[in-house]
């Protein structure tokens, strides 16, 4: 079982610079063709400061570029055993290309189901403007760990 003492653990904070080319590659991957998601001028014409992040992109910002799965090693969990259970976003302001986003993550819960066959890790993340501290978005992620068999 994952040590429940990790509940409350703050994961390393970092600043993520939101790059237009990254948002365009994301748009291409999901088949997005609306011009405001691809072109800065079109985004400004649509009322954004620059190309906006797609609604689920904050999850990508929430993966530490230095190690996208840095929440697993401290918990002793192998990447091959994890699945994504749930994901929620609450938005305060759009994140756009050119923004520098400060990412603050915390493990807020760890619990198990099915006699320990499944364990759940809940991570809550706040995305803030590095310059002003203003909140862009908050997120809640639930990771499912598939244990091969209940461990003693």
């Amino acid at each position: 079982m994952i040590d429940r003492a990790h509940i409350g653990l703050a994961l390393p904070a970092y600043v993520y610079p939101v790059e237009a080319f990254q948002l365009r590659l994301f748009a291409k991957a999901v088949g997005e063709t609306r011009p405001e998601y691809l072109d800065s001028a079109a985004a400004r014409a649509a009322g954004y400061r620059d190309i906006p992040c797609a609604p689920s992109f904050p999850f990508c910002i929430g993966m530490n570029p230095a190690d996208p799965f840095d929440m697993l090693a401290p918990l002793g969990v192998d990447l091959g055993r994890v699945l994504h259970g749930e994901q929620a976003f609450d938005y305060a302001a759009p994140i756009c290309a050119g923004d520098r986003v400060r990412v603050e993550r915390r493990i807020t819960d760890i619990f198990d189901r099915k006699g320990g066959a499944l364990e759940f890790i809940v991570i809550e993340t706040q995305f803030r403007d590095e310059a002003t501290g203003a909140l862009f978005c908050s997120a809640r992620q639930s990771i499912v760990v598939r244990n091969p068999e209940p461990r003693a």
């Binding site: 749930e86 994901q87 609450d90």
Partner: peptide, 20 residues
């Protein structure tokens, strides 16, 4: 997310959640 941002023109998305 592509779908939900095209549902109601001019609407602002305040919350978006999924269970896989």
């Amino acid at each position: 997310g592509r779908y939900v941002t095209a549902l109601v023109p001019g609407a602002r998305l305040d919350h978006f959640s999924t269970r896989f």
